[in-house]
Structure formats: C-alpha cells, structure tokens
Amino acid sequence: MTVSSELRQQLLDLIPSLRAFAMSLAGDSERGDDLVQETLVKAWSNFKSFQEGTNLRAWLFTILRNEFYSQMRKKGREVEDVDGAYAERLSTHAPQFGQVELEELRRLLGRIPADQREALLLVGASGFSYEEAADICGCAIGTIKSRVNRARARLAELLELESEAEFGPDQVNEAAVSAAR
C-alpha cells in the first residue's frame, strides 16, 4: 500500500510522545530528536510490515528503542556515557529556573541502566501496560515488572541524595558528584 496522508497525520500526532520517550531514554535533546527522525524514516519505509488495526504507537516505540540500542552498540557507548554527557552540559550551561527539575530528573534517569530506564519510561510515563511494554522490549512481563521496580527504587534513592543539598545550581552539581561516588 502507499503511505497515505492519513498515516502522515497519525505520525505527526505521535511525534510529541515519541520525543518525550526518546529524549528521556537518550538523556539528550538532540540525540532524542535524531532517534525520532530515524524512527519516522524507518516506519515510513517499513510501513508494509505494519499490521493495520494493531497499535501504531507501540510499533513506533519498538522501532525507536531498537534504534537506540543499535546505536548504543555501534558506538560502544556505556549507559554511563549518557549521564556523563549530560552532566558536562549542566556544568557549562546553568539551567534556567524551572528547567532544573526537568534537567535533573533526566540526568538522574541517565544514572540507571538503560533497560530499567526504558521499562520505567514506557510504563510510568508513556502510559503503556506491562504487557505492551513487554511486547515493545521483546521480553517477559515479569521482566518488565522487575525492571520498573528496580528503576523506581534506584531513582527514589538518587532523588533523596539530591534533595539533601538542593539549594542552588552549585549544590545540585555537587550532589551529582557525590551521588556518583
């Protein structure tokens, strides 16, 4: 089938939630948008393999996370690199007031393993069921539940560490350093 203008509109409508997932997964706005771009291109050229009537949103998220992991393998990136790159940007560009929370949470997300971060984002923020998340990640539902629980526990731990020294950008950065130890 030819890709219709209807699909174009559906993809357009899903871009905001794809961006939120991609940026939070990659820990970097630019990398996140590059992931979304690759996802759209791949979705468009592989649309024949998409079963109409099934979940387009889940299909796109699957393409995006596969692209994320394949890039990570290609570049030999470690999960920690996400955080490293982010922390570097934090120190060179002091975040605007009001953005701190967003940047900080995204940075902390970078400190947990990618598979746990992914599971938490899919279930805890993107609104997928455990079952859908398991389909997207190609693993068992129990595995997703376990990853989500681990991610939540680790994030809560990190947030608590941060809040102890939360009085300004300098302290926030120091907290990040001490949390890294």
């Binding site: 890709v3 203008s5 174009r8 993809l11 357009l12 871009i15 905001p16 939630s17 961006r19 939120a20 940026m23 939070s24 948008d33 979304v36 771009q37 759209l40 291109v41 468009w44 929370e101 967003l102 949470l105 995204r106 938490l120 984002l121 805890g124 923020a125 993107s126 939540r152 994030l155 809560a156 947030l159």
Partner: peptide
Amino acid sequence: LGRELRHMYHQIVSEPVPDRFVHLLDQLE
C-alpha cells in the same frame, strides 16, 4: 516519582513539533 516523571514528559510533549519533522514527513510523502 510517577508525578515527577509525567511532569517531565508533559514539558516535552507540550512543546510544538519541531519544523524538521514536519519537513521530513513532507519529503517522505
């Protein structure tokens, strides 16, 4: 934690779709 996460998401989701994606879809179409 759930509220924080969704808040973070909401900030990104409520941004307008960048032009690069509109142009990309135009070109694909």
